[in-house]
Simulated scan of single mutants.
Amino acid sequence: MSVKQISVGPEVQFAIEAHYRAEVRLWQTGQYREWLKDMIAEDIHYWMPIYEQRFLRDRRSDPTPDDAAIYNDDYGELDQRVERLYTGTVWMEDPPSKIRYFIGNVEAFDAGKDEFDVYSNLLVYRNRRQLETTVHTLGREDSLRRVGDGFKVFRRKLLLDARVTQDKNLYFFC
């Protein structure tokens, strides 16, 4: 953080953390349409870039949205992914995975005009079929916009810690 950021007050911090708890509850109960409609802004950029683990002397720039990515979605693409889950044709999610999300180290900063920059860590514990278990750790960089009594995410950058994952697919939201 090179620019001094202004932390939000405790009431806004609590409200943002409550937003994240509600988001997780929607995912864990399979309410993906509600998540998209209620918590995601129509101008969303949902991005999981592909990072390389590099030596310190390797000074190449970080990935941009123009580079290859695991996810590089707008609202329409998220909507397609959500609707596909309701078709019964996503064989990798039939039966659905059991996933638990653990969100921590939530830091929220005032970005002005009722917008907030939020950094958090996420642990995703996924059980699939009978014997498949995977654990993912990642960082999230979100931009939230206050809408009514809540928030909507309009930027989400997902930073998966593992360069190579043992999971057979990443067909879940985080």
Results as ranks from 00 to 15, higher is better:
residue 52 E to G: 06
residue 53 Q to N: 14
residue 53 Q to K: 11
residue 53 Q to F: 04
residue 53 Q to C: 07
residue 54 R to K: 15
residue 54 R to E: 12
residue 54 R to G: 09
residue 55 F to D: 10
residue 55 F to P: 05
residue 55 F to W: 08
residue 56 L to T: 14
residue 56 L to N: 12
residue 56 L to R: 10
residue 56 L to E: 11
residue 57 R to W: 11
residue 57 R to S: 10
residue 57 R to K: 10
residue 57 R to G: 04
residue 57 R to L: 05
residue 58 D to T: 11
residue 58 D to G: 14
residue 58 D to M: 15
residue 58 D to K: 14
residue 58 D to P: 05
residue 59 R to N: 12
residue 59 R to Q: 09
residue 59 R to G: 07
residue 59 R to E: 13
residue 59 R to A: 12
residue 59 R to H: 10
residue 60 R to F: 04
residue 60 R to T: 08
residue 61 S to K: 13
residue 61 S to M: 14
residue 61 S to I: 08
residue 61 S to E: 15
residue 61 S to Y: 06
residue 62 D to C: 08
residue 62 D to F: 12
residue 63 P to T: 01
residue 63 P to S: 11
residue 63 P to C: 00
residue 64 T to F: 15
residue 65 P to W: 07
residue 65 P to R: 14
residue 66 D to H: 07
residue 66 D to W: 04
residue 66 D to P: 02
residue 67 D to C: 05
residue 67 D to P: 02
residue 67 D to L: 05
residue 68 A to R: 13
residue 68 A to F: 11
residue 69 A to S: 10
residue 69 A to M: 03
residue 70 I to G: 12
residue 70 I to P: 02
residue 71 Y to T: 03
residue 71 Y to V: 05
residue 72 N to A: 10
residue 72 N to R: 13
residue 74 D to Y: 11
residue 74 D to A: 10
residue 74 D to N: 15
residue 74 D to R: 07
residue 75 Y to D: 04
residue 75 Y to L: 08
residue 75 Y to I: 06
residue 75 Y to G: 00
residue 76 G to P: 07
residue 77 E to P: 03
residue 77 E to I: 09
residue 77 E to A: 14
residue 78 L to E: 02
residue 78 L to I: 03
residue 78 L to K: 01
residue 79 D to N: 13
residue 80 Q to C: 05
residue 80 Q to V: 03
residue 80 Q to G: 08
residue 81 R to D: 01
residue 81 R to W: 00
residue 81 R to H: 01
residue 82 V to A: 01
residue 82 V to M: 04
residue 82 V to F: 00
residue 82 V to Q: 00
residue 82 V to C: 01
residue 83 E to D: 14
residue 83 E to K: 09
residue 83 E to G: 01
residue 85 L to I: 03
residue 85 L to K: 03
residue 85 L to C: 06
residue 85 L to R: 04
residue 86 Y to P: 02
residue 87 T to D: 05
residue 87 T to F: 09
residue 88 G to D: 04
residue 88 G to I: 05
residue 89 T to V: 10
residue 90 V to A: 10
residue 91 W to L: 13
residue 91 W to D: 09
residue 92 M to Q: 14
residue 92 M to N: 10
residue 93 E to G: 03
residue 93 E to A: 13
residue 94 D to L: 11
residue 94 D to V: 15
residue 95 P to L: 09
residue 95 P to H: 06
residue 96 P to H: 05
residue 96 P to Q: 08
residue 96 P to R: 14
residue 96 P to S: 05
residue 96 P to E: 14
residue 96 P to D: 09
residue 97 S to F: 06
residue 97 S to V: 02
residue 97 S to I: 02
residue 98 K to H: 11
residue 98 K to C: 10
residue 98 K to L: 13
residue 99 I to R: 03
residue 99 I to L: 09
residue 99 I to G: 07
residue 100 R to Y: 07
residue 100 R to G: 02
residue 101 Y to S: 00
residue 101 Y to C: 05
residue 101 Y to Q: 02
residue 101 Y to E: 00
residue 102 F to N: 05
residue 102 F to L: 12
residue 103 I to K: 02
residue 103 I to P: 00
residue 104 G to S: 15
residue 104 G to Y: 06
residue 104 G to A: 04
residue 105 N to I: 02
residue 105 N to D: 11
residue 106 V to W: 00
residue 106 V to C: 06
residue 106 V to K: 01
residue 106 V to I: 12
residue 107 E to D: 06
residue 107 E to G: 03
residue 107 E to R: 04
